[in-house]
Design a protein around this nucleic acid. Structure first.
Lengths: 131, 131
DNA sequence: CGGTATCCAGCCCGATACTG
DNA sequence: CAGTATCGGGCTGGATACCG
């Protein structure tokens, strides 16, 4: 079976593939992770996200936000103030996803040791020559 | 800090974002997960993967394999037999990644319960609550 | 401030055909 | 069997300008 690291060996490969890929799809956007992590540290206004993410365009930030919103990971709240104010935050579902996401980070930190190998492009020192 | 769900609150947001995105990058190919899960259940020949993955093209399968290979997740082994034979398998690093990947699947199974909420890609026929 | 509209570039992926 | 070569299409994301 596939899952030696877990107990539920009764689910099909196909089901795991589909589901895993679907989850990956939720955060596959170029900036999804950035937005998720930023919102994990607190509610933000649109312009705060725009500034803090860095090089993102407004169009793409909006797209990213809408996508996360549609998937139920992020909540949008608009206030009728006169310079308009909109705040984004993580939903409970969004929060729950930070766990699995952290396990990916943990893996990187443990296996790739400091992530230095990941910056730019991943170049692993070959544990043994592959022919 | 950001990580209320974990203990290591001493790493920067930036570092987590970079690392998490890097890991995501390793498996971001359309077929990476399929290949990884398939290889997780045992070594396969090229043609076996080609058949088992389903709708993938040879070019894309090769690309996916090369990418996973470059990242150190998959090992390639060629035999000089006369109908050429090539076998692919997971490296220890590849194996170690199946854990974090499973936690993504677990999340989907727990939070999305049937994956129906996952846009378009996953078409679950009739929801006959299995628990 | 918080977006849209429009145009455009790059990348990933597929189909088909050919090769050692 | 296990690829490579070539052409092409769709989708994501960027730049800029404009709007309530």
């Amino acid at each position: 079976m596939t899952c030696t690291s877990l107990a539920n060996a009764d689910v099909s490969d196909y089901e795991m593939i589909e589901a895993t890929r679907a989850v990956l799809g939720l955060v596959s956007g170029r900036w999804s992770i950035d937005v998720l992590y930023l919102l994990a540290s607190g509610t933000r206004r649109y312009s705060e996200l725009f500034y803090e993410v860095g090089e993102i365009s407004k169009k793409t930030l909006t797209q990213t936000l809408r996508s996360l919103q549609r998937d139920g990971l992020v909540a949008r709240r608009a206030y009728a103030d006169v310079p308009v104010r909109v705040e984004y935050s993580l939903t409970p579902l969004g929060w729950s996803l930070t766990g699995p996401l952290m396990s990916l980070y943990e893996w990187a930190a443990a296996e790739l040791d400091g992530v230095s190998a990941l910056r730019g492009s991943v170049s692993m020192p070959p544990p043994e020559g592959h022919t």
